[in-house]
Each structure stands twice: as structure tokens, then as C-alpha cells.
């Protein structure tokens, strides 16, 4: 008898348990509350903000000018203003907090001694954290779509830049592409936060570290002198999802962005597993 009766490593830390453990956290609920409320706040802002007088003649329309044109435009606008930071923070929170918070509560050592095998613990936690991140990324544009449609109606989408219109139903699958790309492009944030999470006892350190590195990457991206090297920065292709809303669907930018994101994510996650396996857990 090497193990207690009924013990099987494959059954430890079921996803259901981990989801419940994380869901009741105030942090999770506040983040989801914020993501779900943001579209309504913006709707109110657009409703009560000063209206621009008359049709201004502009050579190119900005995405924010079109936000109140239709629900789809509004959702695109919400995504564009939140993808670069809010969603990054949300993803970093879910993925960076997951292991580090257990370490800070000291509950990590009891899970490991339960025993939940270390690889399995990381795997289950990563899956749940990614699931919560995906939920966050999906629920924001969907709520924006709902709020925008209720507030501004269901019209064809007007493309930023050229001002061309695409039929609303044609754009709906494109919107799916946008969300899909947002998911893939945030993988790198998730992996980075997760790696830091396995290395520190401080949940805020993990989240802040991931967001901080993200900011550094954004700053580096502004250095024109780096030339095409910038293409390999994890933040560089952040806005490539705009191509999915262009009249001509262009995959090249999103392909590059997905490639860069998956590359970083695979390596970072592998490093996280490798480090955690050998780590002495002293927290």
C-alpha cells in the first residue's frame, strides 16, 4: 500500500474545485464587475458628452468618432480602448495571482502535500486562470455589443479610416475573429504573469511585474530606431485585430501577432513548469 485508498494523482485538484476556489475571491468578482460595467459607463459618457456640432470634414475617421454609430462600432471602440491596458491587467491578474496567492496564503504547501503533483497543480491552475482570462476577454466585447446595440441600435458597421460601411451580419463573424485574436494575443501576458507567479510569494508582484514588462515592451515599441526588430516585441501586433474589421480581411498582421504571442507563451509556460518542478517551496 503506497498511497492512501482512493488516492489517484489524476484526480487531484479537479478543475471544478479550482474554479470554485478562485471564483469567490473579491478580486475575481470586482474585475468581472468592472469589465461588465465599463460598456455601460461608456454608453452613458457618450450619451451625455457634448455632441460634436455638425458633420466635421475629416480626411480619415477615427474609431472613437464612430463609436456611437452602432452597437458593433461601439463594441469595436470598447475593445480598442481596453485591449491595450484593461484586458492586459485583467489577464495578468487572473494568471499572475493564481499560484502566488496560494503561496502567500500558505495554502500552496498543503496542496502540494495533499499531494497534488506539481505539474498537475500548475496545469490545473493554468487552465482555470486562462479560462477566467478568456471569460474576461469575451464578456467585455459581448457586453459592449449588448450595451451598444441597446443604446445606439443595430446598424451596419462603419470602418474607421475610410468610413466605408459593411453590413452588420457580415461583420459578426469578423467580430468573432477579433475576439479570437484578442484571446491569442493575450496569451503572452498570461504566460508571463504565470511565470512570475510561480516564482514569487507576492500576488501583486506577479501582476505588477507582468504589467510592468508589458509597459516596457510598449515603450520599446515606440523606439523607431529598432526598426523591424520591434515586430518581435510582444506588444507590437496588439492592434492587428483592426484588420479583421477592414473591408478587406487581412490575415498577415494577425498571423504574425499570433505567432509572436504563441512563441513567447510556449517558452514562458515551459520555463514556469520547469522552475516550479525543481523549486523548494518555502512559503
Amino acid at each position: 500500500m503506497t498511497a492512501a485508498t482512493g488516492y489517484a494523482p489524476r484526480r487531484t485538484l479537479p478543475l471544478r474545485v479550482e474554479i470554485v476556489r478562485q471564483f469567490k475571491r473579491r478580486r475575481t468578482l470586482v474585475m468581472f464587475g468592472l469589465l461588465l460595467a465599463l460598456p455601460w459607463i461608456l454608453v452613458v459618457a457618450f450619451q451625455f458628452g457634448p455632441q460634436s456640432s455638425g458633420q466635421q470634414q475629416q480626411t480619415s475617421l477615427r474609431i472613437s468618432d464612430l463609436a456611437s454609430a452602432s452597437g458593433l462600432n461601439f463594441a469595436a471602440f470598447v475593445l480598442s480602448v481596453s485591449a491595450s491596458f484593461l484586458l492586459v491587467v485583467a489577464v495578468a491578474l487572473f494568471c499572475g495571482d493564481t499560484v502566488a496567492s496560494e503561496a502567500s496564503w500558505s495554502s500552496l504547501r498543503y496542496l502540494l502535500a495533499a499531494p497534488v503533483p506539481r505539474d498537475r497543480l500548475l496545469r490545473q491552475k493554468l487552465i482555470v486562470a486562462l479560462g477566467y482570462s478568456a471569460m474576461a476577454i469575451i464578456c467585455l466585447p459581448l457586453m459592449a455589443l449588448l450595451a451598444g446595440t441597446l443604446a445606439f441600435g443595430w446598424h451596419d458597421i462603419q470602418v474607421p479610416g475610410t468610413g466605408e460601411t459593411i453590413a452588420a451580419l457580415d461583420v459578426l463573424p469578423r467580430f468573432g475573429i477579433v475576439i479570437g485574436y484578442a484571446l491569442v494575443s493575450q496569451l503572452v501576458v498570461a504566460a508571463l504573469a504565470f511565470l512570475i507567479s510561480t516564482a514569487t510569494d507576492s500576488p501583486l508582484g506577479a501582476v505588477g511585474g507582468a504589467v510592468g514588462l508589458w509597459i516596457v515592451s510598449t515603450i520599446l515599441q515606440a523606439v523607431e530606431a529598432l526598426g523591424s526588430l520591434r515586430e518581435f516585441l510582444p506588444t507590437f501586433w496588439n492592434t492587428a485585430w483592426l484588420d479583421a474589421l477592414a473591408p478587406e480581411l487581412d490575415w498577415s498582421g494577425m498571423a504574425k501577432g499570433a505567432s509572436v504571442s504563441v512563441t513567447y507563451a510556449a517558452v514562458l509556460v515551459a520555463v514556469a513548469f520547469r522552475r516550479f518542478r525543481r523549486k523548494d517551496v518555502v512559503s
Binding site: 500500500m1 492512501a4 488516492y7 496564503w105 500558505s106 500552496l108 504547501r109 502535500a113 499531494p115 505539474d119
Partner: peptide, 29 residues
């Protein structure tokens, strides 16, 4: 432990109950 060598995640740990260096609970539950 019970003849099994202890390593991270060794199944025999399931026969071990432990309380080391203070409690570890999820404060929100």
C-alpha cells in the same frame, strides 16, 4: 514514508497529514 521515498508529489504523501509552519487557508472562504 511507509517504505516509499519521499519526492515532490509522491503518492505516499496521501498517507501523511501535515500541519507545518502555520495554517494555510483561503481567507475569502
Amino acid at each position: 514514508i511507509f517504505g516509499d521515498r519521499v519526492a515532490p508529489g509522491a503518492p505516499v504523501l496521501s498517507r501523511l497529514g501535515s500541519f507545518v509552519e502555520g495554517p494555510g487557508f483561503l481567507p475569502h472562504l
